Computed example of a mutant assay.
Amino acid sequence: MKVLIISINSFQELTGGGLYLRQIVDGYASKFANVTLVTKANNSNNYITPVKTLDINKNFFADIVSRIFLLPSFHMVYFFTIFKEARTSDYLVFHSSRLGLLSWLLKRIFKDKKCIVHFDNVETILIRSSKLRFNLKSCITLIDKLLVPFSEKLAIKSSDILTTITSEDRNMLKGNINLSGNYILPICLPSKDINLSSDREKNLLFTGSFDFWPNQKALLRIIDLAHKNTSLNYVVAGRKLDLFVSGLPSSTYVPKNVTLVSDPSVEAMSTLFSNSGYYINLVKDGSGMKTKIAEALSYGQTVISYRSGAIGYESAVNSGYVIILEDSSLPEDILHTIVKTLEVNPKESSIFKFFDNEYTYKKSRKLIEGLFLHER
């Protein structure tokens, strides 16, 4: 049996989408010997790809042409390349509901092939909340506000198997899907041996891609907290961080107790996680599970998070490894919770064991294996 996986992300990406793609690829590669991945081209070599890969280039031309054909991605200019691979595949797997038109077209052409769609968030919710500015990217966003809901509906319609990342995401879609044919595939990470610093600092780490507006808003909240209590130290790291910070107004300056690390390598990011004892997640926008929390737990970090940012991690919350902030919390309330949390000795060994049981590939492999017991 041959599997074709098509994604809007790159396997090499240091983003939540890249992380979820690697999890999906691992799950199918553990079950099937013949897997091909169509993925966004990326010159980095952060990870070894365990399957055959076809890289396709994302550029302005591909973005525009694809949207002319009503696809809110960049894949339509590569349709015949994808068609050729799909023709010889038994399963067509799509990572992202943005590929709904593509999944619908291929399902119409190859009616006997099984179509599986993995939602890693509800794109319609994200795109509706996106801010518009006077630039080219906002023009594409404006078009996508129309195309993404259409694409999402086609993804649902064309799927034989559909997964969402949380039950909350499934409930957001419940007006459009057959719940009996929908399954949950939460975020999982590979097991790894981690060398932690013998004296982890009481820094509060926050990571993300800073061309993504929910992370931008979270950083502004951290800056505000840092000004209000200069005895607490924060480390913020991620893609395009310098670019975002350089565009902030002069009235929003980063205080000395916030350390910024822009575009870190995989090794540098791992060091930041290893050296910091705590993780703070002040993201409360969007949908899906926040991959940053799973990463923090994988390093034995105690997490402080908004309730809406901790969706999908209920077992970690109940175990006391994720400390909840209500979304309506005032800065003073957040600072009080942070100070109280830092006074308690961390539970690193317990968190490691919990993470290994709940959020590693051995769990996602079982879940993907189980999908084939429920084909409809």
Results as ranks from 00 to 15, higher is better:
Gly18Ala: 09
Arg22Thr: 02
Gln23Cys: 11
Gln23Glu: 14
Ile24Lys: 07
Tyr28Met: 09
Ala29Phe: 05
Lys31Ser: 09
Asn34Trp: 03
Val38Phe: 07
Lys40Met: 14
Ala41Arg: 15
Asn42Met: 02
Asn43Pro: 08
Asn43His: 13
Ile56Trp: 06
Phe60Cys: 05
Phe61Met: 13
Ala62Asp: 06
Ala62Gly: 02
Asp63Ser: 07
Asp63Val: 01
Ile64Trp: 00
Val65Arg: 01
Ser66Leu: 10
Ile68Phe: 13
Leu70Met: 15
Tyr78His: 10
Phe79Ala: 09
Thr81Ser: 14
Ile82His: 04
Arg87Ile: 05
Tyr91Cys: 02
Val93Ala: 08
Phe94Gly: 01
Leu99His: 06
Gly100Ala: 11
Leu101His: 05
Leu102Val: 13
Trp104Cys: 11
Leu105Ala: 10
Arg108Gly: 10
Lys114Asp: 09
Ile116Glu: 03
Asp120Asn: 13
Ile125Pro: 00
Arg128Trp: 01
Ser129Trp: 02
Leu132Gln: 12
Leu132Asp: 06
Arg133Ser: 12
Asn135Lys: 02
Leu136Tyr: 06
Cys139Glu: 04
Cys139Gly: 08
Thr141Asp: 12
Thr141Glu: 12
Thr141Leu: 11
Ile143Arg: 09
Lys153Ala: 13
Ala155Cys: 08
Lys157Leu: 08
Ser158Ala: 15
Ser158Leu: 12
Ile161Asp: 00
Ile161Pro: 00
Leu162Asn: 02
Thr163Ala: 05
Thr164Trp: 00
Arg170Gln: 03
Arg170Thr: 00
Asn171His: 04
Gly175Asn: 12
Asn176Ile: 06
Tyr183Gly: 01
Tyr183Ser: 07
Ile184Gly: 00
Leu185Val: 11
Cys188His: 04
Cys188Pro: 07
Cys188Arg: 03
Leu189Pro: 05
Pro190Leu: 05
Pro190Ser: 10
Leu196Asn: 01
Leu196Ala: 03
Lys202Thr: 11
Leu205Trp: 01
Gly208Asp: 06
Ser209Leu: 07
Gln216Gly: 06
Ala218His: 06
Ala226Cys: 14
Lys228His: 11
Thr230Asn: 13
Val235Arg: 07
Arg239Lys: 15
Arg239His: 12
Leu241Ala: 07
Asp242Lys: 14
Gly247Leu: 14
Ser250Asp: 14
Ser250Thr: 13
Thr252Ser: 12
Thr252Gly: 03
Tyr253Phe: 15
Pro255Arg: 10
Lys256Asn: 15
Asn257Cys: 09
Ser262Asp: 14
Ser265Trp: 14
Glu267Val: 15
Tyr279Met: 15
Tyr279His: 14
Ile280Lys: 01
Lys284Arg: 14
Gly286Glu: 08
Gly286Ala: 11
Gly286His: 05
Thr291Trp: 01
Ile293Asn: 01
Ala294Lys: 00
Glu295Tyr: 02
Gln301Arg: 08
Gln301Met: 15
Thr302Asn: 01
Tyr306His: 10
Gly309Tyr: 00
Gly312His: 02
Gly312Glu: 01
Asn318Gly: 01
Asn318Tyr: 06
Asp327His: 07
Ser329Tyr: 04
Leu330Val: 08
Ile334Ala: 05
Ile334Tyr: 02
Thr337Met: 09
Thr337His: 00
Leu342Ala: 08
Glu343Met: 13
Pro346Ser: 08
Ser350Phe: 05
Lys353Phe: 06
Phe354Asn: 05
Glu358Gly: 09
Tyr361Gly: 07
Tyr361Glu: 04
Lys362His: 13
Leu367Lys: 04
Leu373Cys: 05
Glu375Pro: 01
